[in-house]
Design a binder for these strands. Structure first.
Lengths: 225, 225
DNA sequence: GCTTATCGGAGTATTTCATTCCGATAGGAT
DNA sequence: ATCCTATCGGAATGAAATACTCCGATAAGC
């Protein structure tokens, strides 16, 4: 799932690096399905790593969560660039959604509000939204995507599917999710159907959730200005 | 949201009954979004009711969860019967899904495994699945539903959307959910599209999650036999 | 005005969790 | 071969969260 940078190490150092990825993958799985409240011990167990090893790399739970968010946003941005480079606009969009759901990019959602967002994170988030806007615009112009679907609809869709899955996910879960995703993507295609109900989702609503309780997060306010 | 049986009471008794529904609605909201691990206090607070009042009615958290499951399954069965009675097969199915998502019928999913399932619950679950089978069969025969979609796909779809929503859900959340649901339902319609990937979801997979850890749940085994 | 069912929430014992500490293990240098 | 040290795993710890109980306050019904 996670892309590994192959830089050959030896012995203990190799194990350390391997563990790092194991932890990150496990953390994503655990926090995505059980929310930010999930215990660190669950991450360690799933990664097959001791608590000591985990804390050697991440000084606190918050640090791990932040790292996780950044990683997901970076991967998401990478996938977005690939989508824009795809020959067909619709295929690019569909592939982007599938990829993001694949590594549970939208799993950040439940984490919103549990950690104080750094300026760095805001920057990445902003960039991600801009890229998605571009993808959706292209698919609209190309006629592959039904025109009443907005970029934020797609965002929510990714989040919806990212959170799916039991605490202990199995291949069967993946299978079911793939099917539902295929159904949803099919529903996204341009076609003479009923217009979508309600109003387009707002950026304010999407962004507001990240406000960390108790402290003023200035970045949000400038974001919403 | 929840259908109330209007049996006029007076004064304190009326308040008691009103509280009962407040608690049930709040509990569904809380457990659906935060999982079975959510604190009882959160339910009380959301219902605007003291802990005392809550425990007067439900002797334990487990009892509340069980009651919640039964209620959701009963409401779901009611919606299913209405769907079968609908003039149009497709409209019946779509309405059923929307109704179930509306009262978060699929929110039972995350509760699976957290409580020991009673025979009564198995009975209701079984009945629900039979009804859904009938709805899906009818929609297939009628040609409105794409034929590679199974009843369990629909089941998972309902669960997917039932779990959606932030801890503190807002009208904006509902709006976004409605739109995504419209997209998904549109993807469900019969139409010359790519067949669904993977294999149809299995009953075993769906049912297995309800196995309560530590104790053998005989009903599951007979269910799977 | 009195009785009593019901209400809300503070209090308690228990559990869960984040974080720390340390003995064990095994690369890698001498 | 042997010692040194980085890393590992998980038990120990103190703090926070949580299920559940208890009780004084409130107001309906007579």
């Amino acid at each position: 799932m996670t892309e590994r940078v192959e830089r050959p190490r030896r012995g203990r150092q190799a194990e350390a690096e391997r563990n790092d990825w194991l932890v990150l993958d496990a953390a994503r799985e655990v926090f995505a399905t059980r929310g930010a409240g999930a215990p660190i011990a669950a991450v360690a167990e799933r990664a097959g790593v001791g608590m000591g090893s985990l804390y050697r790399r991440y000084g606190s739970k918050t640090e791990l969560l932040r790292r996780l968010c950044m990683l997901a946003m970076e991967q998401s941005a990478g996938a977005a660039e690939a989508a824009l480079a795809a020959p067909d606009a619709w295929d690019g969009l569909a592939g982007f959604v599938r990829t993001c759901v694949g590594f549970r990019s939208g799993a950040l959602g439940p984490l919103a509000g549990a950690i104080e967002t750094t300026p760095e994170m805001w920057e990445a988030s902003r960039r991600g939204r801009d890229l998605l806007d571009a993808i959706v615009d292209r698919a609209h112009r190309d006629g592959g995507l039904r025109e009443d679907v907005t970029a934020l609809d797609v965002m929510w869709l990714i989040e919806l599917f990212s959170r799916w899955g039991a605490a202990r996910s199995s291949p069967e879960d993946d299978n079911a999710r793939q099917r539902l995703l295929a159904i949803a993507l099919d529903g996204l295609r341009a076609r003479g159907t009923e217009p979508l109900p309600g109003t387009p989702p707002s950026v304010e609503h999407y962004v507001e959730r990240w406000r960390y309780p108790g402290r003023v997060t200035q970045a949000i306010d400038s974001e919403l200005a």
